[in-house]
Computed example of a mutant assay.
Amino acid sequence: MTTRVWDYLPEYREEKADLLAAVETVLESGQLILGRSVHGFEAEFAQYHGLAQCVGVDNGTNALKLALQALGVGPGDEVITVSNTAAPTVLAIDGTGATPVFVDVREEDFLMDTEQVAAAITPRTKVLLPVHLYGQCVDMEPLRRLASEHGLAILEDCAQAHGARQNGRLAGTMGDIAAFSFYPTKVLGAYGDGGAVLTDDPDLAKDLRQLRYYGMDKVYYVVRTPGHNCRLDELQAEILRTKLPRLDSYLSRRREIARRYQEGLGDLTGPGGLLLPAVAPGNEHVYYVYVARHPRRDEIIDRLKQHDIELNISYPWPVHTMSGFAKLGYAPGSLPVTERLADEVFSLPMYPSLPPDLQDKVISALREVLTEL
């Protein structure tokens, strides 16, 4: 049997009764769009984070895009972020007509190098967009200082960091506004697409609710500003309500799996060889993905396929190297750390219901391959 990087079926079988009951709740409710399930999840997700406002949307990409629009970002503006991210982060910026401006990431933890941000700020900069990558938070204090000094907003991309903390504060609570994805693979995943925007600002939340519903205040009333059709689905919202109370247990399981990887592979790590995830000071990692690094990554992936083990690469093509973003003008070598990582990182299987025997299989096979390289 192939060992997959991610598999929802064990979790589904464990939670099946509650999930099907959630679906039945919606179908029996008499309201299938923006009903009590969406409103209930919004209240509960905001409460989990200690914030006042949550606006449910249809996916994480639109969570970012609508958040940027609510912040007033548009053509002529610049948004500083990283290229070492999933393309939707940058697509959301591009979708507003603004220009993405990239800084590199740090060698040790692959997160935004905040020391490079000040030099990237121009009179056109409007938003700083840190990506809390792979399950841990960007160093937020330097960004908050820069935002205060230059009158900028901070939008946190939390698609990979549900429940992650920095110095006790949850991801999504350290900027002006935060975007989440509930794609099925996420730490808190739906059984389809979904997303949300968190903020403590009621005016931003009001704008977001208009933007997600054509720009209207009420159903089929006047369009106040051109918006979108980006509503969170009732079925997905009720499923997320069912899973949210389990989030902390999901995090505990992920951390236990990460601990077992460290114990099983830590003695093989070293400069020029295998590197396992590093946790930045003050961070509580949630291991959305377990990203390792090795200069002979491609050989490792090929060899593990012979053991029926799938690995993943996050991400093999930095956004600034993609043909769709050639217009931004980033030449090869302009973000050297990001480009090196693209050639060396790979993800081991990681999901809360990963059986211990399958994890042992991964550890044993990877040890065998590494000792033979």
Rank of each mutant, 00 (worst) to 15 (best):
E108F: 09
R367E: 03
R36L: 04
G282P: 10
G163M: 02
T199C: 05
L235M: 08
F110H: 15
P10E: 10
Q262D: 08
Y214V: 10
E24L: 11
L235V: 09
A17E: 11
I154V: 05
L32S: 06
I154E: 02
R296S: 02
V38N: 05
H285D: 06
I363G: 07
F110E: 07
G35S: 02
V187W: 13
E115H: 11
A119D: 12
D267P: 03
A179C: 00
T122C: 09
A292M: 03
E11P: 05
A196E: 11
A164Y: 09
R246Q: 06
A331K: 15
E14I: 00
C54F: 00
R297H: 08
R124A: 14
R13A: 07
I300N: 11
Y330D: 04
E372Y: 01
P202T: 00
E372L: 09
I93L: 13
V197I: 15
P226E: 06
N59I: 01
I121E: 09
T99Q: 15
S334H: 10
A292V: 05
M140S: 08
E372P: 01
V222G: 02
G72T: 01
A205R: 08
Y8K: 15
D113W: 14
Y261C: 04
V38A: 01
N84I: 12
A179V: 02
Q262I: 05
A43Q: 10
S353P: 09
K305R: 15
T225W: 06
E14V: 01
G175S: 08
Y221W: 03
R255M: 10
A17T: 12
D248S: 10
I121N: 13
A196P: 04
P142K: 10
L276E: 12
D176I: 14
S181C: 11
H49K: 04
L240M: 12
V187E: 10
G172T: 11
E339A: 02
Q53A: 13
S334N: 13
A92N: 01
L358T: 11
E344H: 10
V79I: 15
M322N: 06
Q236Y: 04
I33K: 07
L348W: 03
P277Q: 07
F180H: 05
P352D: 11
A120P: 11
T199A: 01
L358Y: 14
L66Q: 06
G189S: 08
I239V: 15
V82I: 09
G40T: 07
V38C: 12
A205H: 15
Q359N: 09
S249C: 07
D233G: 05
L370S: 01
T242K: 00
Q262R: 07
V79W: 07
Y134K: 06
P202A: 03
R255D: 09
M140R: 05
G175W: 02
R106I: 01
G266S: 01
D94H: 13
L240Q: 00
T173E: 04
C230Q: 14
N59G: 00
F182K: 01
N59H: 14
L244N: 07
D77K: 13
Y12T: 11
G163N: 04
G97W: 06
P100V: 03
R4V: 08
R36W: 06
T321L: 15
I309D: 09
A63E: 01
L358W: 14
G40L: 04
